[in-house]
Computed example of a mutant assay.
Amino acid sequence: MFQAVQAVLFDLDGTLIDSAPDLGAAADKMRTDRGLPGLPLDDYRPMAGAGARGMLGVAFGMTPEHPEFLTYREEFFVNYENAMTERTVIFDGVHAMVQALQAMGMPWGVVTNKSQRFTLPLTAGMPLFASASVVISGDTTAHSKPHPEPLFEAARRLGFEPHRCVYVGDDERDIVAGRAAGMGTVAATYGYLGATDISQWQADAHIDLPLQLLKLIESA
């Protein structure tokens, strides 16, 4: 489907890794520390892609406009920082997909909105990312997705033109950013989408399993 692809870039949470258990646990600890009953992971999972905003929304019904939001957010960050790889796992099929990309001689990398504070230790602590050619965090550039600049920066570091790259993500902002960067776009439906209607995103393709990506680029 995609022609002359030279590299594949991925979102992180919900695309390569299932971090919902650790994100949910960080927020739920805030509840139990306040004497509130814990909530099941299933309550947190659909909002895992929204980071602190999503987790605090589930845990406390709190929005960024709340006067204590920044204080609560930092507490959440500290909780997450202290245990961000305890329950996080690689999605089934991702290891095999990455191995296949390597066998094809296809460089791959990560472009996430997660800040370097978390991205760098997390990727350093998981063997999967040892073969990543580039890791771009939400604060690597002056902009985060859906702005295309993080994707442009990844392409620059790889030494490829953006239109020679494919970007895979599980959130609409991933597809918006990829389209704005001129990259081929793939929506990953196995992450945190829930009942989301991805047909509105206008992605070039979608995959229900990580290994399905290979069929989109094998003949590129």
Rank of each mutant, 00 (worst) to 15 (best):
F2D: 00
Q3T: 06
D13F: 01
I17K: 02
I17L: 07
G24W: 06
G24C: 09
A25C: 02
A25H: 09
D28Y: 02
D28C: 04
D28M: 11
R31H: 15
T32F: 01
L36Y: 15
P37W: 10
L41F: 04
A48V: 04
G49D: 01
G49S: 07
G51M: 03
G51F: 02
A52M: 08
M55T: 10
L56G: 11
P64R: 14
E68A: 11
T71I: 15
T71Y: 14
E75L: 15
F77W: 09
F77K: 08
F77H: 10
V78L: 03
N79K: 09
E81M: 11
A83N: 04
T85R: 08
E86Y: 03
R87A: 07
I90L: 08
F91W: 00
D92P: 11
A96L: 09
M104V: 11
G105C: 08
M106I: 12
M106R: 13
M106W: 08
N113W: 14
K114A: 06
K114Q: 07
L122Q: 05
T123R: 04
T123Y: 05
G125N: 10
M126A: 03
A132K: 06
G138T: 06
T140L: 15
A142F: 15
H143F: 14
E149T: 15
F152K: 00
A154N: 06
A155K: 08
R157T: 06
L158A: 11
V166P: 06
G169V: 00
D170K: 00
D171N: 03
E172P: 05
E172R: 07
I175W: 01
I175L: 04
V176Q: 09
G178C: 04
G178Q: 04
G178W: 12
R179S: 08
M183W: 02
V186G: 03
Y190M: 00
Y190A: 01
L193I: 00
G194S: 12
G194A: 12
D197G: 08
I198S: 06
W201C: 03
Q202I: 12
A203D: 05
D208S: 15
L209T: 13
L209H: 04
K215L: 02
L216I: 07
I217K: 10
E218W: 12
E218D: 15
